[in-house]
Amino acid sequence: MSQSGLVETKTGYVSSLLSLFASSSTLVCCAIPALLVSLGAGAALASLVSVFPQIVWISEHKEIIFLISALLMLVGGVMQWRNRYAPCPIDPDLRRTCLKTRRISMLIYLFSLVLMILGGWFAFIQPLL
Rank of each mutant, 00 (worst) to 15 (best):
M1Q: 13
M1G: 11
S2A: 03
Q3S: 09
S4K: 08
G5W: 09
L6V: 10
L6Y: 10
L6G: 14
V7W: 08
V7L: 12
E8G: 09
E8Y: 10
T9C: 04
T9R: 05
K10A: 15
K10V: 15
Y13L: 13
Y13P: 00
V14A: 10
S15I: 02
L18M: 10
L20P: 04
F21V: 03
F21I: 10
A22K: 04
A22E: 04
S25V: 14
V28W: 11
C29K: 02
C30W: 02
A31E: 09
I32W: 14
P33F: 03
A34H: 09
L35Y: 08
L35K: 11
L36E: 08
L36V: 03
V37L: 07
V37W: 01
S38C: 13
L39T: 06
A41E: 11
A43F: 13
A46S: 14
S47A: 14
L48H: 07
V49P: 02
V49S: 01
V49C: 00
S50D: 03
F52V: 09
F52W: 07
P53Y: 05
P53L: 02
P53I: 07
Q54A: 14
V56Q: 05
V56S: 04
V56P: 06
W57S: 04
W57F: 14
I58G: 00
E60K: 14
H61L: 00
K62D: 00
I64C: 06
I64N: 02
I65W: 02
I68H: 05
I68P: 04
S69A: 15
L71S: 08
L72M: 14
M73A: 09
M73V: 08
M73F: 10
M73I: 11
M73T: 07
M73G: 02
L74D: 08
V75F: 12
V75G: 03
G76F: 03
G76D: 02
G76T: 00
G76K: 06
G76Q: 06
V78P: 01
M79F: 03
Q80F: 10
W81T: 02
W81E: 07
R82C: 05
R82Y: 14
R82V: 09
R84I: 13
R84N: 08
Y85V: 12
P87R: 10
P89L: 01
I90L: 14
I90P: 05
D91Y: 02
D93C: 08
R96F: 13
T97A: 14
C98P: 00
L99E: 15
L99I: 03
L99S: 04
K100P: 00
T101R: 00
R102M: 09
R102G: 06
R102C: 04
I104K: 04
L107F: 03
I108G: 03
Y109L: 13
L110I: 15
L110Q: 05
F111C: 13
S112Q: 10
S112L: 00
M116Y: 10
G119L: 04
G120P: 01
G120V: 08
G120Y: 06
W121E: 04
F122N: 01
F122T: 00
A123Y: 03
A123T: 05
F124E: 05
Q126E: 09
Q126K: 04
Q126T: 03
Q126C: 00
L128A: 10
L129S: 10
L129P: 02
